[in-house]
Nucleic acid binder design. Structure first.
Lengths: 142, 142
DNA sequence: CATTTGGTGGGGAAAAGTGGGTAATTAGTC
DNA sequence: GACTAATTACCCACTTTTCCCCACCAAATG
């Protein structure tokens, strides 16, 4: 389970620490410590999948109609990178990925349950504001 | 059941005691002692859910139409933090949450039945005044 | 008035994050 | 194919934050 928000700094070399809470989730619960990071196909952020979830995604894509499948492969499968964070818990993201999410110094990690998202802090803040505005008048009945 | 109002102070380190009355409710009545604290989506306060209620909320959100769901995930699910209060009954709230509720020193806890809210005392007072004004001319027939 | 319970402050140990240095690998060029 | 340059991986060290525990004070209880 990936839950919570964390901001870490990317250093000169392009390395960012994966929040410890997420690293723990990657190591427990039948996970193997590895993550696959790739583009979000419809959001200016990256998505990190533990191995099992990544396999699920691949299966889903595999069953898509031919053209859609091709697009997904190009956009999502191809740029994906597998990581085992180094001893300090950091990863070095490839240029393509950094650019897609427009990552600068302050990198924001957002847990979403089975996966987590990686945002540039500024983009995240903007996105969040949009969310808050959209929910402003929404009444939640429970 | 969470009822009553309590004000506690947040210390230099950002810790606040959960009122003992609420902690008791968290431990009795088939609860497991844990709370999940997150943003209120339309109010400048935080909401604390015992595990069971949190699951209910997750289920509700899961069944929402795609766009609404996405917003709720960003605003409510992602920033959520799970706590088992320490031996002194305190929790350390993440910055994101503290900011959303604009928490300063005096923190106000308000029981609302199945959950409870966490307010900055000043915001709470203001909100209460608005409530009183709105009900000023309302006659309650029973 | 004594005793318990709840809230608050602070200290110390551990963990997380960050920066930098060096070795190893890769890539590029002659 | 060998040499050089650049990139990447690995390791060490420092700083900051977080967590856990102890101790005190104040209020409530009997």
């Amino acid at each position: 389970m990936f839950q919570g928000e964390f901001s870490n700094n990317m250093d000169e070399k392009g390395r960012v620490s994966i929040p410890a809470a997420f690293r723990d989730s990657l190591n427990n619960f039948h996970a193997d410590g590895k993550i696959i990071i790739t583009r979000s196909h419809n959001t200016p952020c990256l998505i990190a999948y533990p191995t099992r979830e990544w396999k699920r995604l691949q299966a889903v894509i595999k069953d898509m109609p031919a053209e859609l499948k091709r697009h997904f492969i190009r956009v999502v499968i191809t740029p994906s990178q597998e990581f085992a964070p180094d001893r300090q818990g950091r990863v070095l993201l490839a240029g393509v990925l950094r650019e897609h999410a427009a990552l600068s110094r302050s990198v924001h990690f957002a847990g979403t349950g089975e996966t987590f998202e990686i945002w540039d802090k500024a983009s995240w803040d903007k996105q969040l504001e949009i969310g808050l505005a959209a929910l402003k008048d929404f009444e939640l009945d429970m």
